[in-house]
Computed example of a mutant assay.
Amino acid sequence: MKVRILGCSGGIGGRHLRTTSILVDNDILIDAGTGVADLSIAELAQIDHVFLTHSHLDHIASLPLLIDTVGDMRNRPLTVHATDATIEIMRAHIFNWAIWPDFCEIPNPTKPFMRYENLAMGETVDLEGRRITALPANHTVPAVGYQLDSGTASLAFSGDTGPCPELWAAVNKIDNLRHLIIETAFSNRERRLAMTSKHLCPSMLVEELAYLQRDVEIYITHLKPGQIELTMQEIEDGVGELRPRMLQNNQVFEL
């Protein structure tokens, strides 16, 4: 399993800031933020599955345009995996004919360009031996994280989350866990905002990582532009012994 980071920023701007999206091999996306737009049309057409952590714009921004761009080049629908709550939000507020066409009905309901597949918390989807499992998260809208398991090794991705004991209970059960990608959206000076918006700041990250019982490589995602250096320094000062690193665009993990 090859995992490539298409976007990992908490905002946009410049050549290297792309919002959350992860490409698994050539055919699976975890979230569909602005990083997806850097793929070629041929690469976009190969994507068969999109797993959404939640419905916020920075995680779904490229999905409507992806389907519009390559829907007629494909011989089967793009499958969007998400919780019932996220699917209902997408139906009501994105693919509603007012913001964007409903591609579950285009070109016709029997052969659409897109289809939804409900994913329950803790459920695992097996795609040719690649196992993707929904993990708990705590955000302002219904949200999940994901475990990506090749059979040999796993990567856990928190998605957007505030403090979440249930996440750590699930992560600590992953015997072959090799990498952990966890968000830290704000610096410590904005701890109150982090709490209100159900994100993490470095001091909160320290509290959360105290629950971690696995020896893993830790990568930080969703850093806000303009606060990157400050936030990473605060993380280093707080949990330096764990040596967390900043996730990078186009970083590749082999599982």
Rank of each mutant, 00 (worst) to 15 (best):
W168E: 02
N176R: 08
H199S: 11
L155V: 12
L167N: 00
L230A: 13
A134V: 11
C104E: 14
F113L: 10
T79W: 03
V24E: 08
I89R: 14
L247S: 08
I30F: 05
T124K: 08
N138L: 03
V141Y: 10
T20C: 09
L209C: 08
H56S: 14
Y116W: 12
L78G: 00
V50Q: 05
L212C: 03
N108C: 07
L209K: 04
L148S: 07
D31S: 15
N108P: 00
R131K: 13
V239H: 08
E254M: 10
E183Y: 08
L6C: 06
T34D: 06
G35S: 02
D149N: 05
M1C: 12
R18M: 08
A134Q: 00
R178T: 11
V80W: 00
D215S: 12
I182E: 06
R214A: 01
D84S: 15
Y219A: 05
P112M: 05
A194F: 04
L242T: 03
T184S: 15
V24N: 01
I22H: 03
N138D: 12
Q251N: 04
R243K: 15
N249E: 14
T133A: 05
L135G: 04
A45S: 13
R192Q: 13
I22Q: 06
S187L: 02
A120Q: 15
G240L: 07
L223V: 07
F186V: 08
V239C: 13
E128T: 11
I67R: 04
D38M: 11
L17G: 02
E183K: 11
L57T: 14
P225K: 13
Q251K: 05
E105C: 12
H179E: 14
H16Y: 15
D126M: 05
T19D: 11
D58F: 10
L17C: 15
P109C: 06
R192Y: 10
C8F: 01
N75P: 06
N75W: 09
M73H: 13
D237R: 09
W100V: 13
T196A: 14
M90V: 01
V171P: 08
L255W: 06
V70L: 01
D84Q: 13
N172K: 04
R76G: 03
S197R: 15
G71H: 09
W100M: 12
T184V: 14
E105N: 14
R18H: 15
G10V: 00
P165W: 02
L155H: 02
L17I: 07
T140P: 08
G13Q: 03
A153K: 12
K2A: 00
Q227L: 13
L57G: 11
K2G: 04
T69S: 11
P202G: 02
I94A: 06
I94W: 03
P142G: 01
T83L: 02
K224G: 03
I182G: 04
V171D: 04
I22S: 02
L23F: 01
M114P: 03
L52A: 05
R15D: 12
C201W: 11
L247K: 04
E229T: 15
R214C: 07
N108W: 02
R115I: 10
P244Y: 01
L135Q: 06
A143C: 09
F113E: 06
G129R: 04
K111P: 00
R74A: 01
K2V: 04
I218N: 05
P165C: 03
K111G: 08
G71F: 01
F157K: 03
H139M: 13
P163D: 13
P225T: 10
M121N: 10
S187R: 11
G226P: 02
G129A: 07
W100E: 14
T231E: 04
I67Y: 04
C8E: 06
